[in-house]
Design a binder for these strands. Structure first.
Lengths: 222, 222
DNA sequence: TAATATTTTTAAGTTAACTTAAAAATATTT
DNA sequence: AAATATTTTTAAGTTAACTTAAAAATATTA
C-alpha cells in the first residue's frame, strides 16, 4: 500500500473521531465541520478514500472506516499521542501547547521512529491529557472513568482526563490546580445551574460550572 | 511572511547547497538534478520564489538566495541537523539511518520546538556526520579541517566529518571502525592509484581507496 | 403526503506543483 | 562567425485538494 497524503490522513482521523463519538457513520457535513472544509470537498475525498478501500461509502449514507482505514487512523492517533508525551515530558511543553505541534509530527512516516520513540518514553499508556495511547496493534487501554458531573455529593474521584481539549479549558484547569492526578471531593451541587462545589486534596475549595464538571473525567475512589 | 510549503523549502535548501559548494549562482539544471525534477518545474518554481523575494532570479542567469531566503535555508539546515542529533543520541539510530527521517522532521513548523529541542540536546555544534549546526542566527561553526587525502605520510589526524553522506559510505566506515573521533596516521601512499595505508588508534592497519580518503575530513594533529 | 428545509453530490473553476514537448536563449566547437 | 549543442524557458496538460454554485437526494414539518 502506497503511503497516504497528509490530507488523506486527516480525513481518516476525522472519520474515526466522529464515528467513535457518535457511534454511527460519519456524515459529510460532520466531516466538513471537523476539518473546516466545504461538504463538496469531503464528497470529493470520500470517493478517493473509497477507491483505496479505506472507507465504506455509499452515496448519501455516510461513511465508516474499513479495517485498514481504522488501522491507519489508530496508528495516527498513536503517533499523535506519543509525540504529545514527548513534548510534555521531554521538552517541557505544557499540555495546552502540544496539540498543534503533534498535529504536524503525527504525519512523519517512519515505523522505526515511532517504535524507538515509544521505547524511549517508556511505553506510556496515556497522553498528557489522559487520553489512552493505542498500542502497536491499535488496542486502546480501557479505564473505568466517568464525568465529574456524575459524582454524588460526598463522593471522591481522581482527575484522569478531559473531554474538551481547548487551550482555554486546559489553562483554566491549570489555574485552578485541577490537573491530572488531583483528587477531588464533591461537597455540594447547586441544582439551579448544576454548578458544583468541590474540595481539592490540598484542602482548597472551589466552585465549578457544569461546563467544567461535564468535561472532567475522574476515576471514582472507594 | 506567510509560511512556506515543503516544496518551496526544499528548493531553498537545494539552492543553498549548490551555491555554497560551487560558489556561484545555481543553474536551473543543477537544481533540477538535486531535487530529481525536470528543469521546467524548476523554472516554474523560481518565478514563485522570486515573487516572494526569496531568490535573486534573472532569466537564464541562475539564482542566488536573498538574505531572507538564506535565513530560511539555514534555519532548515539547523532543524535538519538538530533532529539528526536527536535521532542518533536520544533514539539510538545509526548515522546512516537518520537522513530521510530528518528530511521530514525539518519541515515541522514551530520555533519553540526547535528552541527546546536544541536546549534538550545541549546546544550541539555538529551533527552525527560532523556537519556544523548553524546557531539560531544562522552562523556556522568553522573548523580547520581537511580531506584525509591531503595528509602526508607520517601525519596524524582525527576524523571529524564526511563529504559523502550515502548510507553505503557510512556503513563502510562503520565496518572499518572509521567513525568520527577516530585518530588515523598515514603510513604510506601508493601513487599508482592514490590509495592509502593508514593506522587506527586501536593499532589496526588498513588500506583505503582515494575515494574514501577524499571523502573523509580530518583535523590535523600536532 | 405534499411542501419545505436540509444534506449531499455533481459540475465547473482554482491553485500548487509537477510532467512532456516545443521554442528560445546561451554556449561551444569548428 | 556560423553551425551545432546545450540549457533554459514557455506552453499546454495532469493531479490532488480545495472552492462556489447548482442540482439532486433525503428529511422534516405542516
Amino acid at each position: 500500500m502506497e503511503t497516504l497524503s497528509t490530507a488523506e490522513e486527516n480525513y481518516l482521523k476525522a472519520i474515526f473521531k466522529i464515528c467513535e463519538s457518535e457511534d454511527k457513520p460519519a456524515s459529510t457535513n460532520a466531516i466538513a465541520h471537523e476539518l473546516t472544509m466545504t461538504p463538496a470537498a469531503v464528497s470529493d475525498m470520500l470517493k478517493r478514500l473509497s477507491s483505496k478501500e479505506l472507507v465504506h461509502y455509499k452515496r448519501h449514507r455516510g461513511v465508516t472506516l474499513t479495517d485498514s482505514g481504522e488501522q491507519l487512523a489508530t496508528a495516527l492517533i498513536r503517533k499523535h499521542r506519543l509525540w504529545e508525551v514527548f513534548l510534555c515530558d521531554v521538552l517541557d511543553f505544557s499540555w495546552d501547547e502540544v496539540h498543534e505541534i503533534a498535529e504536524q509530527l503525527e504525519h512523519i512516516q517512519s515505523d522505526q521512529l515511532i517504535k524507538r520513540l515509544d521505547a524511549f518514553l517508556g511505553q506510556p499508556k496515556f497522553d498528557p491529557h489522559g487520553d489512552p495511547i493505542p498500542d502497536a496493534d491499535g488496542k486502546f487501554a480501557k479505564r473505568k472513568q466517568l464525568q465529574l458531573v456524575a459524582l454524588e455529593v460526598g463522593e471522591v474521584g481522581v482527575v484522569v482526563g478531559v473531554l474538551e481539549h481547548s487551550a482555554a479549558f486546559l489553562q483554566y484547569l491549570d489555574k485552578m490546580q485541577l490537573g491530572l492526578g488531583v483528587q477531588v471531593e464533591v461537597l455540594e451541587v447547586y441544582e439551579f445551574d448544576n454548578s458544583m462545589r468541590i474540595a481539592l486534596e490540598n484542602l482548597q475549595e472551589l466552585t465549578i460550572s457544569s461546563k467544567v464538571s461535564e468535561n472532567l473525567l475522574v476515576q471514582k475512589q472507594a
